[in-house]
Design a binder for these strands. Structure first.
Lengths: 199, 199
DNA sequence: CCTTCAGGTTAACGATCGCTAACAGGCTTG
DNA sequence: CAAGCCTGTTAGCGATCGTTAACCTGAAGG
């Protein structure tokens, strides 16, 4: 958990602005001039940093997917052999991500089809591997439940956790955020808990 | 629950096709020529039925919101005074809707900002009223939980139920659908059940 | 049988889009 | 100090978009 202190590069400024704009108005709903204006340069100036508008979206989506997967793998490695602790850790990590990067969460399942075939396949593969981490973890807790059902449940819980953008408008102070975090954690555990057969 | 037997009007054909295309590629990602082609006419022919592309999206979003709200109100009225039965009924109704109209579910929280101010306000108001039905129902079951928390939980469960489009590609036979229905019901009840304080 | 009209067609418009070309200023570096 | 790159600018091209205009056709109705 290292914290960045140096100033963001121009590339990073652009990516952040593009993520916000794409999430707000959709990939096709945002022009390159607006993205440029959001970082204080004009539209064509962006082409000094990216090959095109598509490349910005691709880098955003590949980036999120990679960060999610590597974070998940780290948690799997750190969890020892405690399945409960692993699932809790995956949930907490996903919540942190959803609360920290709301625009990216929105893009993640909304603009995937706007990518070139190769990028789209890559992102989907990363997403699938991330989801498989969850499926494996949940199956260790509920071995009697069919794998297909667990997989569907995992995606449904993703939907629950990714509902963050639809809640509070932006970031109200920290107490609000801690409350949301606690709530989402409770709901996610409750949902998975309901997977157990006859209780 | 009456079943339509008469053929769909051209307007309805167009709306259905537009819903699917908008959900697949985004409002700005679909041209009027494509919508027309999907129903066997050419682009400008659509203007005999709709004032413009915006009007199609508006009618779709207002229509969904109204159907959701009226369906919810019906269930409230039918539930007698049984809070458990009411919540179960709301959940079942929402699941049916999500499974029957996947493209509309996708549009519902994705393209709202592409509407004219007046339509957007109307849709948001309908959505809010629908969500309030849920909040009231859940609060009757968990009176000790703060209203803001219940409201956030309701939206999170919407996210869970609306994850349907991300599951199976299209409609595989009916057994698959019944399984998904059962699973989502279980997960939603589990999530709300976790709202109860100290258990 | 003639009129009307609903529901299509194609052509073409203005606007906007992503992107390239051509150029310019300011650091860095040999 | 000159050369060259890094990062920006403006002008403008070609494509595409939503929409309108003008025209056509078949069926209904008096």
């Amino acid at each position: 958990m290292s914290i960045r202190t140096d100033a963001p590069t121009r590339r990073e400024q652009i990516l952040k602005a593009a993520a916000r704009l794409f999430a707000e108005r959709g990939f096709h709903g945002v022009g390159v001039d607006e993205i440029g204006a959001a970082v204080g340069i004009s539209g064509p100036g962006l082409y000094r940093h990216f090959a095109g508008k598509d490349a910005m979206l691709a880098e955003l989506l590949v980036g999120i997917s990679e960060r999610l997967l590597s974070g998940g793998r780290l948690r799997v490695a750190e969890s020892g052999d405690d399945p409960d602790a692993l699932l809790a850790s995956l949930i907490d990590g996903h919540i942190d991500f959803a609360l920290d990067d709301r625009p990216l969460i929105t893009l993640h399942d909304r603009e995937l089809d706007r990518l070139r075939e190769s990028d789209r396949k890559l992102v989907r593969q990363l997403q699938r591997q991330y989801a498989e981490l969850w499926v494996t973890a949940v199956r260790r807790l509920h071995p009697a439940v069919e794998e297909a059902e667990v997989r569907a449940a995992v995606h449904a819980v993703f939907g629950l956790l990714n509902s963050t953008p639809h809640l509070g408008s932006q970031d109200d102070g920290r107490p609000e955020r801690a409350m949301t975090e606690t709530l989402l954690r409770k709901l996610a555990h409750g949902a998975f808990g309901a997977l157990a057969p006859q209780d």
